[in-house]
Amino acid sequence: RPMNAFMVWARIHRPALAKANPAANNAEISVQLGLEWNKLSEEQKKPYYDEAQKIKE
């Protein structure tokens, strides 16, 4: 299954978030990633939607 825009973004940002929160488990990191993603504007998300579309094609 191809990655969606959030997954493209999260793949880039997960390592830094995990390093900054070494005690957090994957579920907690995923929740935090979701919160951070939701704070982004549509303009900030656009490159990730574009990349996800390329992956689908």
Rank of each mutant, 00 (worst) to 15 (best):
R1N: 13
R1G: 10
R1A: 14
R1P: 13
R1K: 15
R1C: 09
P2L: 13
P2C: 10
P2S: 07
P2W: 11
P2Q: 11
M3G: 07
M3Y: 12
M3N: 11
M3V: 14
M3H: 10
M3R: 06
M3D: 10
M3Q: 10
N4V: 08
N4T: 15
A5W: 02
A5T: 01
A5F: 01
A5R: 01
A5S: 02
F6H: 01
F6R: 01
F6M: 04
F6D: 00
F6L: 01
F6E: 02
F6W: 02
M7I: 13
M7H: 10
M7D: 15
M7A: 12
M7R: 09
M7S: 09
V8C: 07
V8E: 04
V8L: 08
V8F: 11
V8I: 15
V8P: 00
V8S: 04
V8T: 03
V8H: 05
W9M: 00
W9R: 00
W9T: 00
W9S: 00
A10T: 05
A10Y: 06
A10G: 02
A10V: 11
A10W: 05
A10E: 10
R11P: 02
R11C: 06
R11S: 14
R11A: 15
R11K: 14
R11G: 11
R11E: 15
R11M: 12
R11F: 12
R11N: 15
I12V: 09
I12S: 07
H13Y: 12
H13A: 03
H13F: 12
H13V: 11
H13W: 11
H13T: 09
H13L: 04
H13P: 00
R14T: 04
R14Q: 05
R14P: 00
R14V: 04
R14C: 09
R14H: 05
R14M: 06
P15K: 09
P15N: 07
P15V: 13
P15H: 09
P15F: 07
P15W: 05
A16S: 10
A16Y: 12
A16W: 08
A16I: 15
A16P: 03
A16R: 12
A16T: 11
A16V: 14
L17D: 02
L17P: 01
L17C: 04
L17F: 15
A18G: 06
A18P: 01
A18W: 08
A18T: 13
K19Q: 12
K19A: 14
K19C: 07
K19G: 06
A20T: 07
A20C: 04
A20Y: 03
A20G: 06
A20N: 06
A20H: 07
A20W: 07
A20K: 11
A20Q: 14
N21Y: 13
N21M: 06
N21I: 04
P22L: 03
P22F: 02
P22D: 02
P22S: 03
P22G: 03
P22K: 04
P22H: 04
P22I: 03
P22N: 04
A23H: 14
A23S: 13
A23W: 15
A23Q: 13
A23R: 12
A23Y: 14
A23N: 14
A23L: 14
A23C: 07
A23V: 07
A24F: 14
A24G: 04
A24W: 15
A24M: 15
A24N: 04
A24R: 05
A24V: 03
A24C: 06
N25A: 06
N25C: 04
N25D: 11
N25R: 04
N25V: 03
N25Q: 06
N25K: 08
N25Y: 03
N26P: 14
N26M: 11
N26F: 15
N26H: 15
A27Y: 14
A27M: 10
A27H: 15
A27E: 14
A27L: 13
A27D: 13
A27P: 03
E28Q: 12
E28S: 07
E28T: 08
E28V: 06
E28R: 04
I29M: 04
I29F: 02
I29H: 02
I29L: 12
I29S: 00
I29N: 01
S30E: 14
S30G: 09
S30A: 13
S30I: 14
S30V: 11
S30W: 15
S30Y: 14
S30F: 13
V31T: 11
V31N: 07
V31M: 13
V31C: 07
V31K: 14
Q32M: 15
Q32C: 08
Q32S: 06
Q32H: 04
Q32Y: 10
Q32E: 05
L33Y: 00
L33M: 05
L33H: 00
L33W: 01
L33T: 01
G34N: 14
G34D: 13
G34P: 02
G34R: 15
G34C: 11
G34A: 15
G34H: 15
G34V: 15
L35N: 08
L35H: 10
L35M: 10
L35K: 11
L35I: 14
L35F: 09
L35A: 10
L35C: 05
L35V: 13
E36S: 07
E36T: 10
E36V: 09
E36W: 12
E36N: 09
E36A: 14
E36I: 15
E36R: 06
W37D: 00
W37L: 00
W37M: 00
W37K: 00
W37R: 00
W37E: 00
W37C: 00
W37T: 00
W37F: 03
W37I: 00
W37V: 00
N38W: 09
N38V: 04
N38Y: 08
N38F: 10
N38I: 10
N38T: 08
K39M: 07
K39H: 04
K39Y: 04
K39G: 05
L40A: 01
L40R: 01
L40F: 03
L40D: 00
L40M: 12
L40E: 01
L40T: 01
L40N: 01
S41P: 06
S41E: 04
S41H: 03
S41D: 09
S41L: 04
S41A: 08
S41Q: 02
S41G: 06
S41F: 02
E42V: 13
E42L: 15
E42C: 12
E42I: 12
E42T: 13
E42P: 14
E43N: 09
E43A: 14
E43G: 08
E43K: 11
E43T: 09
E43M: 11
E43I: 12
E43H: 09
Q44P: 00
Q44I: 05
Q44G: 05
Q44M: 06
Q44Y: 04
K45E: 00
K45A: 02
K45G: 00
K45N: 01
K45S: 01
K45W: 01
K45C: 01
K45I: 02
K46A: 12
K46P: 01
K46G: 04
K46S: 05
P47R: 07
P47W: 08
P47G: 04
P47D: 04
P47I: 07
Y48A: 01
Y48T: 01
Y48V: 01
Y49H: 08
Y49S: 05
Y49G: 03
D50A: 11
D50I: 14
D50Y: 09
D50P: 02
D50R: 10
E51T: 09
E51Y: 11
E51S: 06
E51M: 14
E51K: 10
A52K: 02
A52E: 05
A52W: 12
A52R: 02
A52D: 03
A52I: 08
Q53V: 10
Q53C: 05
Q53W: 05
Q53H: 09
Q53F: 05
Q53I: 13
Q53M: 11
K54N: 10
K54D: 06
K54A: 12
K54V: 09
K54H: 10
K54R: 14
K54W: 08
I55H: 08
I55P: 05
I55D: 08
I55L: 14
I55R: 05
I55E: 07
I55M: 12
K56D: 09
K56T: 14
K56I: 14
K56M: 15
K56W: 15
K56P: 08
E57L: 08
E57Y: 06
E57W: 04
E57N: 11
E57K: 04
E57R: 03
E57H: 10
E57G: 10
